[in-house]
Design a protein around this nucleic acid. Structure first.
Lengths: 177, 177
DNA sequence: GAGCGAGGAAACCGATCGGTATACGGGCTG
DNA sequence: CAGCCCGTATACCGATCGGTTTCCTCGCTC
């Protein structure tokens, strides 16, 4: 159910109907309203469920020999890999935030938390790498990350190497080894 | 009519109803369907109308003494000014692209064109400023610009100086005087 | 085999969607 | 003043929205 909801809302947007979600999940509306308080709840839960695998895919737990620079650039390499796939529509959390527009929406809080987790990874690696201003660097990297997601997801940009190149510039300027 | 549509779709998203648009514009549905073929048409036209003032506000025609660097950084300064306002919801064209998801939608083409116009400004100034790779620099700047729009528009980032700082790093790295 | 509860299918609710058609009203031209 | 026409207001269309309820069947327990 959660997986089907995640996939359909990612492909068609949050305005997809509940009926379609249930049909695709093979679950009756009755059952779904026993599991979730409403559409908002379902949406928030389906986003919540995606967070661990999302973060893990982009920034897997580092092995011993991975430098901060490698881990950060790895995020952008994996972003570019994903963006090359035809079904890529950008970061699902960013898309939900933009589509909902309402910061009060339960799903907005979840999506914001997902973005915060990735930013924390950036910040921690920035610190470990000796960046002059780790928080600034992490915010800059998030700008690039989300800009790339929005633009590539909308189909108005092709990333091949663009984000890794840009991130490298920022890492250099921040003094990360 | 176009202005009212622009404002409401910006604030509430493209899924706002036609009825609300007409009421807010003081125009009957009948008249609007004589002026536009349908909602898609209206949406595209209202976005189209915003392009000149949007570009002019962000990147006004340069006076004689404006350097490429100043003109580019001016875009980000104005972005940060706008993002500080409470009604800021991010770039309307980017929001439309993300919300519609459909590149075939007439409004998507218009929105993509608007983004292209801004990128052209960046590219031209990059060239004028002697950037090593003007096209690369303009793409990088658009990443920052759209990332900032998405994040600040969603309320998960505050820009104060973030984008100008980041753009400065990119300009320096590209060798723009 | 009888009784029971969970869950699926589908009808149903009022509201609203994009879009159309009708009816009325007020300002022009003769 | 008569006739006309543009635009507003409004009712209406079928479809779909989020959400609720009814019904009925299936599988489980005693």
């Amino acid at each position: 159910m959660l997986d089907a909801a995640a996939e359909l809302t990612y492909r068609d947007g949050v305005s997809i109907g509940i009926e379609a979600l249930c049909r695709s999940a093979g679950v009756s509306k009755r059952s779904m309203y026993q599991l979730f308080a409403g559409k908002d709840d379902l949406l928030a839960a389906s986003l919540e469920r995606r967070i661990p695998s999302y973060v893990e895919r982009l920034a897997p737990d580092p092995g011993e020999t991975v430098t901060p620079r490698e881990r950060i650039l790895g995020v952008f390499e994996r972003l570019e890999e994903g963006a090359a796939l035809p079904e890529f529509r950008g970061c699902p959390f960013l898309a939900a935030l933009v589509e909902l527009k309402d910061p009060e929406h339960p799903a907005s809080a979840v999506a914001g938390g997902a973005k915060q987790r990735l930013k924390e990874v950036f910040r921690a690696e920035a610190e470990r790498g000796g960046a002059r201003d780790p928080d600034l660097l992490s915010r800059q990297l998030m700008l690039v990350f989300d800009g790339a997601n929005a633009r590539a997801g909308a189909g108005i940009e092709t990333l091949d190497g663009l984000t890794t190149t840009t991130a490298t510039v920022l890492l250099d300027a921040a003094g990360v080894e």
